[in-house]
Design a binder for these strands. Structure first.
Lengths: 226, 226
DNA sequence: GCGCCGCGTGACGCCCGCGTCACCACAACG
DNA sequence: CGTTGTGGTGACGCGGGCGTCACGCGGCGC
């Protein structure tokens, strides 16, 4: 999920953005001033920042500079100032885009999408690979290798393994697995899990009868152990 | 030196931009229509495109889509239309920024600097040539060689192969292929994929019946294996 | 005007992934 | 010892996804 940090001291703006963004599946962090913004940007690891220039505690360009000191994540500036020197200053300070208030929500969302898309294709992608002693799961390529040979998985098998691998080491409840792989209407079909876990073990575990990586937690769920 | 491609059919705009840009050390290419723009973008290797939406020969979003088919270079849209749906359409088509006419020259220059700065930090792009044991795909030249002879591909075939080759080794979902090649409205037409994958295999695979490089992952998508 | 080529569509057979069922293992409990 | 509930395994039928061929249409060039 894309995480957006909204920095603004006007509650109604924050509220409007929070509603619109979370309705579209974004995760929203908010900060009412520059200091909080800088702290949250470091802690919360947002994917993009929406920044109002008129903050109570510090100048907007200083916030931009503070961010640009250590990250290149996209910054969209929001401002009531239509003066072109303000725009130039903000953009040259390192902002990616500049939207003047009052702004159209759909335009802002489109610019947000553009900024996120850009940074997604630009940035070096992380290494989504989970390894165990006997097999390797490549989340990005949707591929599983066992002894350097590709193991063919069906869509359902892969969906199941993917959820477990993305939560490696953690216990995943049966309900969550069923919801993520089959859909919310199948939360009670625990039998599916037994069948497909068995198939995964047969394909991946060295001793399917004594699983070492795809573990059952009786009555609770399953755990992927790297 | 940074190279800017200016696409506009109004001579006075082109002239104003040329003067201002070259005075600031930019190299300037110009195109009066969409077709010329697409050709120049491929030939001239500009670092950034400034694109007027009101072109005589084709729709602006089609120009954006034509560029985005093979490159991620920054596109700044220039338009007299202030309607927010125009902005949203252009940005979602792949534009990086949207400036409404009349515009302040210094603001445009600042947005230009921001776009260039961003793409500079994005890092050098990788090798646009993908090789397999039996054929070679040159993404930049849009050519395919098999046994050192060029294989003629239709536009649709090429579009399909291009998406797969750019994600070499990774599984590409059917939806994504359909969206990238035919458009978002065709996400369900999986039959297209079967037909055109068969054609690609017939032209490129040594044994079309036993594909080694254009692999099907049943129910999930396709994978290009170098 | 004619022919060619690229594109989308329809029909058809094959096969495999899916869900279901029956059965067994095992542990907990009275 | 029987009952109950949870988990694992093998077998099986069905539907849908896949590949393939053939055809009609429209555009473009000769």
């Amino acid at each position: 999920m894309t995480k957006v940090l909204v920095v603004d001291d006007e509650p109604q703006i924050v509220r409007a953005l929070r509603i619109n963004l979370s309705a579209r599946g974004y995760e929203v962090l908010t900060a009412p001033d520059g200091a909080t913004a800088l702290r949250l940007a470091a802690d919360g690891k947002p994917d993009v920042v929406v920044l109002d220039l008129g903050l109570p505690d510090m100048d907007g360009t200083d916030v931009i500079a503070g961010l640009r000191g250590w990250t290149t994540l996209p910054i969209i500036v929001l401002s009531a100032r239509t003066d072109s020197t303000d725009k130039v200053d903000a953009l040259d300070a390192g902002a990616d885009d500049y939207v003047t208030k009052p702004f159209g929500m759909d335009e802002l969302l489109a610019r947000l999408r553009a900024a996120v898309r850009r940074s997604a294709t630009a940035g070096p992608e992380d290494e989504p690979i989970v390894k165990t002693a006997s097999f390797t799961v490549d989340l990005a390529a949707k591929r599983v290798l066992k002894d350097d040979v590709e193991v063919h998985l069906t869509p359902t098998e892969w969906g199941l393994l993917e959820v477990l691998a993305r939560n490696a080491g953690k216990l995943v409840a049966q309900k969550q697995l069923l919801r993520d792989v089959w859909g919310p209407a199948y939360e009670k079909e625990t039998h599916y899990l037994r069948v497909y876990l068995a198939q995964l073990r047969r394909k991946l575990e060295p001793e399917p009868a004594r699983p070492r990586h795809l573990l059952t937690e009786p009555g609770m769920g399953y755990r992927f152990e790297p």
